[in-house]
Design a protein around this nucleic acid. Structure first.
Length: 223
DNA sequence: TCCTGATCATGA
DNA sequence: TCATGATCAGGA
């Protein structure tokens, strides 16, 4: 087991040291089997990178490196460096929303500092041959945070006002709410049209591809 | 072609 | 069920 890094610099150094490796090479070093594809192992790459960097496995609503205040995210990109998928951030609170605001939200906490690891994600490349990219340590700039806050507040209004059933993935410029559960039968409690508690689909906040693309592009520009 | 809604694995 | 890690895949 790899120990948890004790400083941001150490974490960054480790992330740089695995850049350029294929998933197959890194998995072999860690004695982790490589699945044939990601259809039944959608979180495999994320867990591989977590293991390599010494993130502690767990299902707590915390940053991956809480001691450093840093969240780890892999992001699949194509050959042009553009994201292939949206980025899941956190589940949306659908009940007990009193007192929840942007500043104390899980979303803002998770995104306060993120170590992005770009990875080759094109399905035509065999999983074991896909490569790990260079790490990007990011904090939202004022414009990005303002945009996130605006979307978060708009989306939370739907939830608080009992309009979860009106929510679609089309709402929000940089953020969106989409189902986040085992399947379409998954249930959690939410607020109904008359303020009553109802059973509804769990929803999660996702970052749109255009937003994460901007993060990657800004990094390259300042490099 | 690609976005939205659906889905997969695992642990507590 | 919720939280972690996400990607799949068919219909618009």
């Amino acid at each position: 087991m790899i120990s948890t890094p004790q400083s941001q610099q150490e974490l960054l150094q480790r992330a740089k040291s695995i850049a350029g490796l294929t998933f197959g090479e890194l998995a072999a070093e860690l004695h982790i089997p490589v699945p044939p594809d990601l259809k039944r192992d959608k979180g495999w790459v994320g867990q591989l990178i977590e293991t390599a960097l010494g993130a502690k496995a767990g299902s707590k609503p915390e940053q991956d490196f809480a001691n450093l205040g840093i969240e780890l995210k892999t992001i699949p990109i194509n050959s042009a460096g553009f994201p292939l998928e949206t980025t899941f951030v956190s589940l949306a609170p659908l009940i007990q929303t009193a007192g929840v605001n942007w500043y104390n939200s899980h979303l803002r906490y998770k995104l306060s500092k993120v170590l992005w690891i770009p990875i080759q994600g094109e399905r035509q490349i065999p999983l074991a041959e896909r490569r790990i990219g260079s790490p990007i340590l990011w904090q939202p700039d004022p414009q990005q945070e303002a945009r996130l806050q605006q979307d978060w507040e708009e989306l939370m209004d739907y939830i608080v006002l009992g309009k979860v059933h009106e929510i679609t993935a089309k709402i929000g410029e940089v953020l969106q709410l989409r189902p986040k559960g085992a399947n379409s039968r998954a249930k959690t409690k939410g607020i109904g049209q008359n303020g009553e508690i109802i059973e509804t689909l769990p929803l999660g906040f996702y970052l749109r591809k255009e937003f994460t693309a901007q993060i990657l592009q800004n990094f390259l520009r300042n490099k």
